[in-house]
Amino acid sequence: MTETPPPDDRQPEDDRLDELLAEVRSSPVPEAPDLTDRVVRAARWQRGVRGVLMSVTAVVTAVAEGIGAMLGVRHHKHGGDE
């Protein structure tokens, strides 16, 4: 695997590239001052929705299991009567 040339192997082109990269590094990047608020608001909202969905899923599962158990019992009873 080729690696970055060690400092003593550096060519003028490496130095020039570093100068240009330094300018990019020092150039301003867009600020996103309201990003934190937006992310936290979305996280709160999504967590709420996820909580509701999990509750609904739990209720549906419990109801389904209940119905399954009742049907199972009835089926068992019918089976036992025969």
Partner: peptide, 10 residues
């Protein structure tokens, strides 16, 4: 960038 940043943080 801002959309990517927001999605990544979420």
């Amino acid at each position: 960038a801002e959309d990517v940043a927001q999605d990544a943080l979420l």
